[in-house]
Amino acid sequence: MWKYILKRLLLLIFTLFLVITVTFFLMQIMPGTPFNNPKLTPEALAQLKTTYGLDLPLWQQYLNYLIGAAHGDFGTSFQYQNQPVSMLIGQRLPVSAQLGAQALVVGVIAGLFMGAASARNKNNKIDGTLGVISTLGISIPSFILGIVLVYVFGFKWPLFPVSGWGDSFSQTILPTIALAVSPAAVTTRFVRSEMIESLGSDYVQLAKAKGLSAKEIVNQHAYRNSMIPVLTLIGPMAAGLLTGSTLIEQIFSIPGIGQQFVLSIPSKDFPVIMGTTIVYSAMLMVMILITDILTAIIDPRVRLQ
């Protein structure tokens, strides 16, 4: 087990190296320059390029970046002068990660309950209602939901604060809900179909023949078996949520990393693009690794090797 995890972590570092390489050279293809202020004199531009090492040959820039990255130095932002990228991410990632984690927990737990309720009441009113709710949850974009929440709970009935971060927990409630709806809806649909399959299986027939009640069958047999495929869905979902949502962070004025990632692209802030890409890739791979470990814990047929 530990050997396997170590192997996966080494593989993760290698994959990150590939991600860095591909992203680095892709950025060079992007047209334009980070320094597009028309007031800049050619001398000043040359000065800037020297400061950021952009006058060096490409291979040397690449090598410098790799050596820096290996030492935990991801360069300095072009946009926010003198702000090291690692500091920028270090400040903003925890905010996004907390919001994402809250949304993930709320969304997945709600999805597990609603999916199971839907499957147990297959094709009746409860299932139909939950089906409509989850379809809406998947199809309504989170930013529209965010705006509706701001209007309803911030303006019409001002129950929760609608902007800011870090002052009180109540600030996190509306953005968490806005962000949790889509994962909850996706999880509901997925759990429903997996649970229906599980409830139709032979081992559930045998559990019925043992005299177990519907509730006991779901809790003791169906949930665990349905969770195995559901986990593969939750891994990438978690990576997406933890690395921030641009739109939700914008609506609720949350100083997260999602905004950073998007803004860095039009302004060609190379070090920030690189940094956030690395963070996202690393997060995705760690989540997939955690998913694999959890799958091996739940499903005895899976061996980690």
């Binding site: 032979d202 081992y203 027939q205 045998l206 005299g211 177990l212 047999h221 665990r224 078996n225």
Partner: peptide
């Protein structure tokens, strides 16, 4: 249904056809 549950597996029990699928793989 609740009364059936005290009959099933208790007074009347059943042996199923396919042992490859009748056992819960995760228990």
């Amino acid at each position: 249904e609740s009364e059936w549950q005290s009959v099933r597996g208790n007074e009347i029990a059943m042996i199923f056809q396919d042992p490859m699928t009748s056992l819960d793989p995760t228990m």
